[in-house]
Design a protein around this nucleic acid. Structure first.
Length: 572
DNA sequence: GCCGTTTTCGGCCCGACTGTTTTCAGTCG
């Protein structure tokens, strides 16, 4: 069994949860949580690092003790400390922590005073009215627990960014109907362009009195009001999405935006830095003693801390503060940098539009080039192209090339990578194409080494340029297939291949972490929409969000290059 | 358990809201 970084994170998180219930030192617990996050965000396999004898304690936030524990987890898949804790405390207590309003202290009380060990026992106790008898608990808490237990059944999960965006757009439109509000911004992971969003954090600036909280909580989509205060309210919408609204004065808007954009670990790092500078940072500003020295804009906040502005997508405490201090923050790629689209479908396979329609749409977006890359024959369900049909398409592209002004059509294919790593079309025809994208659409369940070998073998074919959606994941629907992405990236570098960042909001594949790893290895990324319709071309912005989270600069991206440079880059 | 622009010991981000209290602990972000 290969122990993944996520396995190590999970063990540390569980240890932290259980130590919290036990009432252990909160800072020790934080060390475990920090470590869990750090490891979860590392592109390199800890298991590999151990095999290669690397010193894990050189990782920031990992000391001798945690390094040793990681080695044990790599060797055994778990840790003896976790076992010991689970002997002391029932594992179901971890599930109870998932219930809002139940934190470690209350879970501990439920266990020690009422002997509750499972969710079922929790429900029975709530029904029997036993919970309200405990110190610190009351009727409302008891009712809340029952409601939440019911809600846990209807599995809630984080929403895809695209879905959250639709909800946020309508809601902020509604909020703006109230006079007296000026700045309004959706902060949180939404603003950091994370692929999924757990809740919406909306921030509003107000200078004069306005019944903003009443306006907010009477929004027609509100199902439940969790809390309603002067400056902070939370509701649950019918969609199940939680929305928090914060109101701050103008002079604090930047500080509040900085704070509510997070991430939490970024904020902790920022505030620790402020402490060392004898300053205090909160959502109202940066303070020297009583005096507010910054807060109107985010830029002011960072400036006051001696830092250049850090883009929201970078704020994950993955080295951005160190980079800011060294003046080596990336100049992140953005929409105007994009010169063309390298992955698109037409009615020749499963696209909805003709070549001409796609070309005009790409031209309207100011692109210099559009690659037509329909599916290959094996993907029968998508009407994949056989050699004769591809030839026919190439003829049409040649014909259109004479008539199309202002957009260059590239001849391409999204060719299936077959089970053995060979490509689904013969080299003779691939040789006629400008761009060849290889994609895995079958045998997702191959063992790690086989899947990895399969993709690397595809790259061994010098006619292949790009690996499409390299992990195969569908967010919230299908896990990535078992593949050693470190090896894939290395293999791409050695062979002069590129990796795709598929911008389709359900994919966003490569993810941010591997984009950063690819950048560090010098492998360029194609940000591609995989458009099956005209509107799909606009999905580029989701890809850009993920690319920016991966620290990508224009030069790290294949399709920021003009056609002349692109042509050179595509010569393997 | 980690870490070092005062430190190898003594710190570790900070504030809002709720429910259960009668001044605050617990939870959350």
């Amino acid at each position: 069994m290969v122990v993944q970084n996520s396995d190590i994170s999970e063990v540390f998180e569980q240890i932290a949860d259980l130590m919290e219930i036990k009432g252990d030192n909160p800072f020790k617990i934080r060390a475990y949580r920090n470590a869990a996050r750090t490891i979860g965000g590392m592109p390199h396999s800890v298991a590999d690092m151990v095999t290669q004898g690397e010193d894990l304690s050189t990782i920031t936030g990992i000391g001798k003790a945690l390094a040793q524990k990681m080695e044990e987890i790599v060797a055994t898949g778990t840790h003896s400390l976790l076992h010991k804790l689970k002997e002391e405390l029932p594992a179901d207590l971890l599930l109870m922590l998932k219930i809002p309003t139940l934190g470690p202290k209350r879970v501990k009380a439920l266990h020690s005073k009422l002997g509750i060990t499972t969710l079922e026992e929790l429900e029975l106790a709530a029904r029997a009215g036993k919970i309200r008898t405990l110190d610190g608990f009351g009727v409302k808490t008891e009712q809340g627990i029952r409601a939440e237990l019911e809600r846990l059944q209807t599995t809630e999960q984080r929403l895809k960014l695209v879905v959250a965006e639709q909800i946020a757009t309508v809601l902020t439109g509604y909020l703006k109907e109230l006079p007296g509000l000026s700045d309004i911004e959706v902060a949180g992971s939404y603003r950091r362009r994370k692929e999924t969003v757990g809740d919406l954090d909306i921030l509003v600036a107000r200078d004069r009195e306005a019944p903003i909280m009443d306006h907010f909580t009477t929004y027609q989509e509100v199902e439940r009001i969790l809390m309603k205060g002067e400056t902070k309210s939370s509701v649950v919408l019918r969609s199940g999405l939680q929305v928090d609204l914060r109101v701050v004065p103008h002079r604090s808007f930047g500080a509040a935006l900085q704070y509510f954009t997070g991430s939490q670990t970024h904020n902790i790092a920022i505030r620790s830095r402020a402490q060392k500078m004898k300053l205090k940072v909160n959502e109202y500003g940066v303070f020297k003693g009583e005096e507010q020295i910054a807060g109107r804009s985010e830029e002011d906040v960072y400036t006051a801390l001696g830092l250049p502005y850090i883009e929201p997508e970078l704020r994950e405490n993955r080295g951005e503060i160190e980079a800011a201090l060294d003046n080596r923050l990336p100049r992140l790629v953005s929409l105007p940098d994009i010169q063309g689209e390298l992955h698109s479908h037409t009615t020749y396979s499963d696209g909805l539009c003709s070549i001409t329609e796609m070309a005009l749409a790409a031209q309207a977006r100011g692109y210099e080039y559009l690659a037509i890359t329909d599916h290959s024959q094996r993907l029968t369900i998508a009407h994949g192209l056989t050699v004769p049909r591809l030839r026919q398409q190439l003829q049409e592209i040649d014909y259109l090339a004479d008539k199309m002004k202002g957009i260059v059509l590239l001849k391409g294919i999204e060719v299936d990578i077959l089970d053995d790593g060979s490509l689904d079309l013969p080299d003779e025809i691939l040789r006629e194409l400008d761009i060849v994208i290889g994609a895995v659409h079958s045998k997702f369940k191959l063992p790690l080494s086989q899947q990895t070998e399969r993709i690397i073998k595809a790259m061994d074919n010098p006619l292949l340029h790009i690996i499409a959606h390299p992990s195969g994941r569908l967010i919230n629907e299908r896990a990535p297939y078992d593949v050693d992405m470190d090896k894939i990236i290395t293999a791409a570098r050695d062979r002069g291949c590129f990796l795709e960042l598929n911008a389709y909001p359900d994919r966003l594949d490569l993810n941010d972490i591997y984009c950063k790893a690819a950048k560090e290895m010098g492998v360029k990324i194609a940000i591609s929409t995989d458009a099956h319709s005209l509107r799909d071309l606009d999905n580029i912005r989701y890809g850009l969000g993920q690319a920016r989270r991966g620290w990508l600069e224009p030069e790290d991206v294949l399709n920021t290059h003009n056609l002349e440079n692109l042509t050179k880059l595509l010569q393997r």
